[in-house]
Design a binder for these strands. Structure first.
Lengths: 100, 100
DNA sequence: TTGGTATATCGGGAAATTCCGATATATATT
DNA sequence: AATATATATCGGAATTTCCCGATATACCAA
């Protein structure tokens, strides 16, 4: 867990926004087809739509968040679903109190 | 308290190092004259010496950390002493659990 | 006032980040 | 196979960050 990489990942308004939206996917991404559910998270396209930035940008932001360990992803068919890694935030919260 | 600014401030190895050193000034800055004490923190020159970077860089890093609210400073004579703002870290730790 | 020391600010080159459009890849459908 | 859709990757312009040397400012001492 590279502290600097984590803080860099969090140093962007759009990425913070995405992380926050992913706390309540059913509320923030009502557009995601009902039959899909939110167990695996939200697909890239839904997130992209909501940010208004381009698909390539959001795809890169999401994989950056994943490299930092803040989200996890699953590929299902042509979709990739991203969800928060809550454990990482708890670890980070503690890390700030003990190691920063 | 601007989240992005705080995370940017933490997105640098040297600045994280400085914050960590400031947790135990007496251990990490034995060079600071005894009669001065550490109540107000550590002066810029001591921090600069320990990092090996230039004076201007460290002066800027410290004021950046201060703008982010992570440290506080006092000017005493020709010296400026910097110390951690522990409350900011506690707030940040909580903020990660609730707002990120 | 003159000179010395500590810190802050300025200007800038190199590297990293932001975000884009174009293109490639993966999967599903027909 | 051909087509369509979702995502990933590539190349790059604009901006920001990193860190420097030079210079300015603040304070102290003689």
């Amino acid at each position: 867990m590279d502290q600097v990489e984590i803080f860099k990942a969090l140093s962007n308004k759009t990425r913070l926004q995405i992380l926050n939206w992913l706390k309540e996917p059913e509320i923030n991404f009502p557009g995601q087809a009902e039959h899909v559910g939110f167990e695996d998270g939200v697909c890239v396209g839904q997130i992209q739509l909501k940010t208004g930035l381009t698909q390539s940008t959001i795809s890169e932001y999401l994989s950056l968040l994943q490299r930092a360990g803040l989200v996890q992803s699953v590929r299902k068919g042509q979709w990739t679903y991203y969800r928060r890694n809550e454990a990482a935030f708890e670890t980070l919260s503690q890390l700030i109190l003990t190691k920063v």
